[in-house]
Design a protein around this nucleic acid. Structure first.
Lengths: 109, 109
DNA sequence: CTCGACTATATCACGACGTGACATAACGGT
DNA sequence: ACCGTTATGTCACGTCGTGATATAGTCGAG
């Protein structure tokens, strides 16, 4: 899939998809991603199995991640260059949202 | 609806819902929200009519927003105290996501 | 005065997504 | 032998944003 369509499809990204791709800066398998996300969100986010394996399959088809190794009972994925571009765009969007959140924060007290 | 269920239902929030509630720190009507969101996102986000009026109806039923005034062809909404609590929780979540985005940013270059 | 652009709201089908239940199976420790 | 954990997969379900379609009032330009 071309990068233009990927950006349109993946930005804005759901929180779930964001943390999955964030975990794949290092090669990881599905279950490892679940544990890693629980770790960096201090237990707040716990991904369901349907979410993980469904999302990984979809992302691989689209070419934002690729299979790093495929051993018995462990399919390890890593992010592709296209995936990195998508994440750069998503991080820029998050910065915008964060900026507006801070700017309007006092309105909610 | 009780605050506990509202937090569960609205956090995490979609980008669209976030910008709609953000716009309601001041009383605004549907069309005004669309224009305001386009403004503070520099034209990046343009909400569809289905999104706005569907979301506003849902949010009103849940009690996160309320009708401020209802003139001819202009229903003006504003955020409720419950809505403010929801937004405070959502802003905290955005700060966490932003923190992780910054922490892992170099992995995508 | 009429035409088009803009304001304003509403409804609906569609596709995409996360969730949790269910299923299966292998591993390690007690 | 048993159990908790690791590990993957599938499916129905509810939720959500989108864009098309419809309707109608306003307002300025020609």
């Amino acid at each position: 899939m071309e990068i233009q369509k990927l950006l349109k499809k993946y930005v804005p990204m759901t929180e779930t998809a964001f943390y999955i791709l964030l975990s794949l800066t290092e090669p990881r398998h599905g279950y490892g991603i679940i544990k890693h996300v629980e770790e960096i969100t201090a237990g707040r986010l716990s991904l369901g199995s349907g979410t993980i394996y469904g999302t990984l399959t979809k992302m691989q088809k689209d070419g934002v991640i690729t299979v790093f190794s495929d051993e018995h009972r462990k399919t390890v994925y890593e992010i592709t260059d296209a995936g990195k571009e998508v994440m750069q765009a998503e991080i820029m969007r998050i910065k915008e949202v964060h900026h507006n959140a801070i700017a309007f924060e006092e309105g909610f007290r």
